[in-house]
């Protein structure tokens, strides 16, 4: 059994889907990188949850 030749519209859709997938993967990696950069900076402090304080109240 032979498959019919892929229509050009599907080739273009594949390029769009692949591109979008790569962009989303890069976005996830960037957010991860940004998070690491932010939490390792000197001015970053964790909220003091032991005393019942929330974010920005430590």
């Amino acid at each position: 059994m032979s498959f019919p030749k892929q229509h050009e519209i599907h080739t273009r859709r594949f390029s769009r889907n692949l591109g979008l997938g790569l962009v989303l993967a890069a976005f996830v990696a960037l957010i991860f990188g940004l998070t690491v950069a932010k939490v390792t900076q000197d001015e970053f402090t964790l909220p003091d949850v032991n005393n019942g304080a929330g974010y920005g109240q430590n």
Binding site: I9, R12, R16, G19
Partner: peptide
Amino acid sequence: TKDAGFGDFF
């Protein structure tokens, strides 16, 4: 008339 490729959006 066509489905756009990734390059068209870029």
